[in-house]
Amino acid sequence: MAVGIRTRQLRKIYTSPPPMAAGAARGVGFSLSKREKPRERIEIVALDDLSLEVAAGEIFGLLGPNGAGKSTTVGVVTTRIRPTAGDAWIGPHNVWQERVAVKRLIGVVPQRPNLDFGLTAREILTFHGAYFGLSAAERHERANALLDRFRLTDRANQLLFGFSGGMMQRLSIARAMMHDPELLFLDEPSAGLDPQTRLLLWDIVREYHGRGKTILLTTHNMEEADALCGRIAIIDHGRVIALGTPAELKRSLPGGFLVRLQFDRVSEEMLQGLRRLAGVSEVRGSDDSGVDVYADRGGSLVPEIVNVATAAQAAVRDVHISEPSLENLFLHHTGRSLRE
C-alpha cells in the first residue's frame, strides 16, 4: 500500500540565521552583554506557499539551486520542521498533528549524514530497526542484506571514525531503508558519491520503487532528475516554478535549444534581426552584452547569427550552445543557472 504526499500552501519563515552562519557570526563562546545589540529581525522566506502533490508509487524529484527550499520542504513533510503556515499530509495523516503515524511510514536520508557515532555501522542499522519494532532476527537479517547491498560488509563492525563521506552516505541510505518504509526521502543523495556509487544508488532507488514504494528525492543535478524521476517540480525561492515529467518540461521550453551569446555591443536592431531568423522562438538580451536565443536548432544557427551581428556592426565574442535540458528550463524561468 503506497502512500503519497500532499502539501497545501506551505510557508516557512526562519527568524534566525542558518546554524552555520550563526556560529560564524557569534564566534566562540557567548557574550555577556546580550542586551547591548538589539537583535536585528531576520526573516528568511524559505517556503513561499508551496503546494505539491506526489502520487503514491511515483519517483518525484525536487529540482532547484542551493537555497531554493528543498531541504526545508523535506524537513516539513518528515515532521522535523514546523511550518509557519500551511499543511502537509503523508497518506491520510496530517504531518504536524499525527507525527508518530507519519514517522512509521517514512524513511529519511538527510542532506548531511547524521549517523550515530556511538555505534558501529551494523549497530546503526540494527538499533534503527529496533526503534521501529523489528524483532532481533529481522534486524540482523535486514542489516546483513543492506550492508551487503551497499558494499559495507567489510566495515560493518567498525565505528564510523574512519569512514569516507561516500561510505557514510551509503550507510545513511541503508539506514533509511532498514524499516522498509512506504515513502523514502532522499535529500541530495548523490552529492558526495563517485560516479560508480551514483549508479548503484540509482539502481537501488529504481528497485525500491519497483516494490511499489514512493520516493521523493531532491537534487540540483538535472541528469539525475532526468534519469530517475517520473515527475519533477522545479523550485526556486520556495515556490514551484514548473512541474511535469522531464519530457513535458523540456518540451515546454521555447525552441528547446539555447544559444548563449556574448557580443561586444548589442543594439535593438540586432535583436530584431535575431528574432527574424528561422526557428528562433525567443530572444532575450540579459545584461548589456549577453543575449540568450531559444530556438529549435543549435549549430546551424551560428553562421546566421554572425551575419546578423556583422550587419549591425557588432562582433560575437562567445557562443555557447546547449541542447534541450532541464538546466535550460531553469535558466528560462529564473534567469539563473542551477549550478550557481
Binding site: K103, N114, R175
Partner: peptide, 23 residues
C-alpha cells in the same frame, strides 16, 4: 554531555527524533 554532542552540527539525535514515538 551526550545531548550536547548529539544536538551539535552533526545532528546525530535526528535518527531518534524520527523514531515512531513522540519526541
Amino acid at each position: 554531555m551526550p545531548l550536547i554532542a548529539e544536538f551539535q552540527f552533526s545532528k546525530e539525535i535526528e535518527d531518534r527524533l524520527l523514531a515512531p514515538i513522540e519526541i
